[in-house]
Structure formats: C-alpha cells, structure tokens
Nucleic acid binder design. Structure first.
Length: 507
RNA sequence: GGUCCGUUCGUCUAACGGUUAGGACGCCAGGUUUUCAUCCUGGUAAUAGGGGUUCGAUUCCCCUACGGACUACCA
C-alpha cells in the first residue's frame, strides 16, 4: 500500500474552532495509525481575508492538543513551502496546461456582468443561476471570442479569470470512505474559477495541485466540501493524476436548535468553541478558549475524538496513543453531532481526578504564583490529593482549596446562623485544648480521637463538626474535617479557632 | 428554489436481517458521608412517518417529512 500522507489545510481567516480541531485530530490519528505522515498546509490564497495572528493561533492550538505534524509551516519538509501564498508561481502553469488541453478557458466577465447574468436567469425562473454548460455561451470568454480577440484582450492586460470547462452529460463519481459512492451529473456543476484575476489560484486549483505535489493519499475534511468534491475529482482526471481517497467528516452542530456550530455560539451558550482564547485583532472582541477555561488538553482531545467517531466498544477514556491504536475511518459516523458541553465537563472532571498528585501540584502552583502565594511541596501534595476529584475545571482547584492557603476572611452566613450558638465559643475553647493534647495529628488519628472526644463530652457530631468546618473553612464545603485539620496542622487550627472566637458573635 | 448528504433515548452513540434495542452524559431516586462534591446502586428515556422486500426488519429498497451542507474571482 502507498504511504499514507494526509494534511490539515486550514485557511488563516481566524481562530480554529473545535470542528477544525477535530478534523485535524482525525487526520493526525489516521496518519499515526498507518505509520504515515501528517502535514499542515496553510491555504491563504485569499489575501482579502487574511487575519493577523490566525496562523500562529492554529499552530499553537494544535500544539496544545498534542496534534503534532511531520511537515508543514514552521516545520518545513520535502515540499517546502507549505504556505500557498509562497507557492503562488507554481499554480499558473497548471491552469495554463488545462487551457492548452482545452479543459479550461479564459473569462473576461466583470463582477457586474456576472451579477446581471444571475439576475437575468433568476428572472427567467432558472433554479440555479450559474456560469455553466448552459450559460457560458452567452458570456465573454475564450469560448465565445475567437482566438485573435482573446489574445488581444490578454495582450492588453485586461483582467481575466480561468474557469474549468465542465463536461456535458457525464456522471462524476466521488468514492467517499464515509459516505460510499456519490454520483453527480456534470451538467449540474458550474465552471468554477480556478485562477483569479489577482494572479492567485482559488482553493480548488491550489488544493488539487498541492495535494498531488505533496503526494497526499487521503483527503479527510469537513462535509462542507462534499459538494465540490466532484469538481475536484474532475480536476484530477483533467490533469491525469490519480486522485486521493476522500473522507468527508460529518459536521459539528450547535448544542441547541439547529445548524452548524459557529463562532458566536460559544458566548451565547456559555461554553468555548475555540481551543484557545482568541482576541479579534480588528474588533478586540475576546472569545473564550478551552485552555483558559481550565480544560486539560487530554480531556479536550478525548472528548473531541468521540464526537463523530466511536471505537465499537464501550471504552470512553482514551489517551492519544490509545486513540491512535483504535481509530479508523470506518467507525466515523455519517450524521452531524450536536456538541454537548456537559459531556466535555464530565471528561475533564474524570481526567483531573485521575491526575497524579504531583501533576495537580503543578496546576496548584500556577494558581498560587498568580496570587503570589507559595507553599512547600509536601503540603501541596496533601492538598492535591484532597481536592483533585472535587474539581471539574482547573480553576475549581482553587475554589475547593483556598482555605488551605488563606484563612477564611468571611464566614458563610447560613452556616453561621445554623451552627453558631451561645454555647459554641465555650465548646471551641475546649476544642483548642483537645487539639493541643494531640500528639498524633494524622487524619486517621484525628478522625478517631475527635469522635471519641465528642462522644465523651456528650456533644452532637453534626454540631461540632460543622462548627469546626465553619471555623476552618469559612463555609460548608470541602474534604473531611479531620483531613483538613490534619493538613492545616495544630498551630493553624488553633489560630483559626481563635480568629473565629474574635470575629464571630460572642453572645 | 436547486444539488448533495443525513435521520436510534434530551445529547454522544452501539446493535453491519433474528437482542428484553446496549453503553455514556444529563436528569430523577436511594445509599455512603460530620458539609459540599465525589463515589456506588437503581430508574427515566429512542429506532421520524408510510409503503414495500423477507419467515423475520433499527438494519435492504421506495416515497414523504424533517434536519444539514453547498449554491462567490471565500476557503
């Protein structure tokens, strides 16, 4: 079998959204699965839509996800350059060859004339007003002009485009790995522009030429490309090249309502649609990203992989290596998937809780350094073990553990009203003595001795524990009281009790 | 409108002619717990509709409905 070579070929017109990331991921998994190569090609043939920073964003996003490419922009390889704008000179000769072979032609119609043609057709009730087998005879092009006239227009530098000459009455067949055979009657296709008047190829030309030159074996891309696949097949045929195998991926849909997931949905529905935060260079508008929201890249990738693909088993948790091992295009579904933010959270919670304590400590340290706090490793390891399974997103780590680092500044009003009674100060006072007597401050010992202390004193378990929690934590949440007290240590526990005694009502 | 693609619990999906239609998320209930989470157990909930083909259709075919993509000198 031919070497597997696949590519992800985004256009740098903005940030990559999760649908694009998934396309890249499937390409990557497929390449790795078949010991092939995965390339990143930047399709920037439309200069008017160039967005500064978009290319860097794409590369950074792929890196964050662990989707590494073998060849491409920033990495280079045997087919450098990988940015289409830098390959500009290559394309013209292919367009010229098509013209020489009678497979394409020059067209001189102005945008206004094209618009008029469409209006005229619409007025006549034509369902598909387009530049095609039926209409090209009425337009200004090298088919309707004679050779001398055409040459004269060319010589006088009149703007022109090169259009493909779509054949009449031919069945064009696309063999799609996901959808099977798709047949289209060629007369339905339009004479797409291959080469623009600005001297740049369109997507269709550049894409086919580059895929051929870069020896791409499989084109794995979004379903939005399916309608132009017949055109691409025709182009391969015109050039006499063997086409790659196609696989058109189903789209990612909005979680609510209908339609393709779009950039706007994120902020509207309160979840990110981008892997990384993006600031629009023009408007300054900021769109949230998974990374900044506190998702782990592994969880994000795992979640994305299962959106449209399944392993055929009941396994849901996959490392990247496991995904590579299990992935196949045969198990990619045909229908679009609605994105479910809740499931994304579930994956992240799972990954967070499975993290080694040392990994959690790293995350904790990042949060702490932002707050200009610092604690020793052993202490952080203890905290990590206690909080990691309580957090869904990385910032929850802080929400669940801040009392380990900063004594409560305020006390939850509801809890206070419920548990802070006239007899409480005396009880706490006595508890200080209890703690002072403990020679073993381990969670296990504290748990046992605290319970027997409460029993011996004839106190209510809930009363003592909840009050202690209020004093230590400031509210009604967090790990077990014994574990908190043990981690905090005798000195800190005593200080917090004294602080509460000072700050809470003394009846 | 036209062309093409699609349609199993609310969501992601399994079942490639024979299953009590399975799993996961969510939701609900119960349990564990000194709190809040976690966790455990159980429950809820689906083959879009109509015709065929077949001994037998979620599965194959057709029609309808619905959804989606595309319909630029954008990708």
């Amino acid at each position: 079998m031919k070497e597997v070579r696949v590519r992800f070929a985004p256009s740098p017109t903005g940030p990559l959204h999760i649908g694009g990331v998934r396309t890249a991921l499937y390409n990557y998994l497929f390449a790795r699965r078949h010991n092939g190569k995965f390339l990143l090609r930047i399709e920037d043939t439309d200069q008017t839509r160039f967005v500064p920073g978009a290319e860097e964003y794409i590369i950074e996003a792929l890196n964050w996800c662990g989707i590494h490419y073998d060849e491409g922009v920033g990495k280079e390889g045997p087919h450098t350059p990988y940015r289409q704008s830098e390959r500009q000179e290559m394309y013209k000769q292919y367009a010229d060859k098509l013209i020489a072979d009678g497979k394409a032609y020059y067209a001189f119609d102005t945008p206004e004339e094209l618009e008029q043609m469409r209006e005229r057709l619409k007025a006549k009730g034509v369902a598909t007003p387009q530049y095609d087998v039926f209409t090209r005879g009425e337009m200004v092009n090298s088919l309707t002009l004679d050779a001398a006239q055409t040459q004269q227009r060319l010589d006088s530098n009149e703007p022109y485009v090169i259009r493909i000459l779509i054949p009449e009455n031919e069945q064009v067949q696309v063999n799609d790995l996901i959808r099977g055979e798709v047949l289209v009657e060629s007369s339905r296709l339009d004479d797409k522009v291959l080469y623009k008047s600005d001297g740049m190829p369109t997507y269709h030309l550049a894409n086919i030429v580059d895929d051929h030159l870069m020896e791409i074996s499989h084109v794995i891309r979004g379903e939005e490309w399916l309608p132009s696949a017949p055109l691409h097949v025709l182009l391969y045929k015109y050039f006499g090249w063997e086409p790659p195998l196609f696989a058109h991926l189903p789209l990612l849909l909005k979680p609510d309502g209908n339609g393709k997931l779009s950039k706007r949905d994120g902020d509207r529905l309160g979840f990110p649609v981008f892997p990384l935060r993006w600031t629009d260079p023009k408007t300054g508008e900021v769109s949230s990203g998974y990374r900044e929201s506190g998702y782990l890249p592994d969880a994000f990738v795992n979640m994305l992989a299962l959106l449209g693909w399944n392993p055929g088993t009941e396994q849901e948790i996959f490392s990247m290596d496991e995904l590579v091992e299990a992935f196949s295009l045969e198990r990619v579904g045909k229908s679009g998937s609605k994105f479910d933010p809740e499931k994304a959270k579930w994956f992240n919670h799972h990954y967070l809780s499975q993290l080694q304590d040392a990994e959690v400590v790293k995350l904790l340290n990042e949060i702490l350094s932002e707050k200009e706090l610092s604690f020793n490793k052993d202490y952080l390891m203890n905290v990590a073990g206690l909080v990691k399974e309580r957090a869904v997103l990385i910032p929850d780590l802080w929400a669940q553990s801040h009392f380990f680092f900063v004594a409560p500044q305020t006390y939850d009003e509801k809890v206070k009203q419920k548990f802070w009674k006239p007899e409480t100060p005396a009880m706490l006072q006595d508890l200080t003595t209890f703690f002072a007597l403990q020679t073993d401050f381990s969670t296990e010992n504290l748990d046992v001795s605290l319970k027997s202390y409460i029993q011996a004193k004839g106190l209510g378990m809930g009363q003592v524990m909840n009050t202690l929690r209020l004093v230590l934590v400031g509210g009604s949440f967090g790990p077990g009281v014994a574990a908190i007290a043990s981690t905090l240590g005798m000195k800190e526990v005593t200080e917090r009790i004294e602080k509460a005694l000072r700050e809470l009502p003394n009846f």
